Amino acid sequence: MIEIIDLSIELGRFALHHVDLSIRDGEYLVLLGPTGSGKTVLVECIAGIHRKHGGRILVDGRDVTGLYPEERHIGYVPQDYALFPNLTVRENVAYGLRARRLPEVEIVARVNSMLKMLGLSQLAERSPTTLSGGEKQRTALGRALVTNPRILLLDEPLSAIDEVMRSELATELSRIQRAVNGTFLHVCHSFDEATEVADRVAILREGSIAQVGTIEELLEKPASLFVARFTGARNLFSGVAEERSGGSVVTLADGVRLACGVRSAGPGVAAIRPEKILLANGLALGSAENVLEGRVTGVKRKMAHVEVVVDAGIDLVVYLPRAGERETPEAGCSVTLRIPPEAIRLLPSE
């Protein structure tokens, strides 16, 4: 288990401010945030690259704050993989074991086992300069994992991988983490990437933790407007809420009134996820609350869904599953929408 307690540091334009974060044993935690939010600095503090900082870092209850990187027994895969170009794949994987002066028989056995697990046996005598991005990533992972670290830190491990390969390698990372029962901390700036691997996600904003939770918790209960935006809540409308029995009614700036399933009062922002909005092409949705009539102004077919934009007094983005693509309305069609009250989150303005 890793415990980060009140960690603060300033490095030029990068800074962390009183960061508190716990990473559980055997957990795959993703550290997510925009460029410049301090993700890499935090990982480098855990690895021991930066030791002059405020606060403490505990590993399994042991204070490692003042220890050098090699004393922490933490694996680290930097963004550029940092493979040795003058060594073969096998020699790169064996490097950490040789640095520890383990017996040659043990080194050979552990390296061969790791190469097999990562599908690198056929590439063992190749130079890193001849490898693809995915092969380099697996080699760097093997070099980190073969030393049996308690923790593995991965800084943007999929950033140099093409989109087709990225999903496959994300699946591979999850498989490896489960196979070794390791504690993985994975840095990225893509929420889609985080959803492929994370048990939990910690969102970092300007050097501070904005929210920590499962994917479901972040989607259903964003703690702030920033988190809602970062996790893809495309429909964000300023308004004023009034409490009522069983929830609230929010009046948006456009005059549209929507029932909300949570109690709130005063000005704020209504956040509505696109996949939560129900759409029927010319069909009525009954007398339920939050039924709106509108006209389709745009349709985009994407890999995971169909994006439909509807003018219903407010411009709403709706995500429809590709499975029902034959029923997707075209631009210009009249449609009926329903926004379930429980799908509306009321957040403070920023």
Rank of each mutant, 00 (worst) to 15 (best):
F184Q: 08
R326S: 12
E193W: 02
I23Y: 06
V77W: 02
L58D: 15
I9G: 01
A210L: 00
V59H: 06
V296P: 02
G313V: 15
T297V: 07
R200D: 14
L219G: 04
L97F: 08
R100K: 14
V43E: 10
V212E: 14
G294Y: 06
R263H: 05
L204Q: 12
V59L: 13
D315H: 05
Y81T: 01
S224F: 02
A47L: 11
D60T: 11
S121N: 10
L16P: 08
I23E: 05
G266C: 11
T129R: 07
R234E: 15
A210G: 03
L252D: 09
V306A: 09
S334F: 10
A223W: 10
Q177V: 04
A15E: 15
L29P: 04
M165E: 14
V296N: 07
L42H: 10
L258V: 12
A323W: 09
G213P: 02
E125V: 00
A265N: 11
A270D: 13
R51S: 12
E168M: 02
V227N: 06
E216A: 12
I209R: 08
V30I: 10
E196A: 12
T65G: 03
G142H: 01
H50A: 07
G119A: 05
G134P: 01
T129Q: 06
V308A: 10
T251C: 07
L123G: 01
R273N: 02
A47D: 13
A265W: 04
E242I: 12
V306M: 02
A223K: 13
T297Q: 05
I74S: 02
E342H: 03
P274V: 14
V227P: 03
I203D: 14
R98I: 13
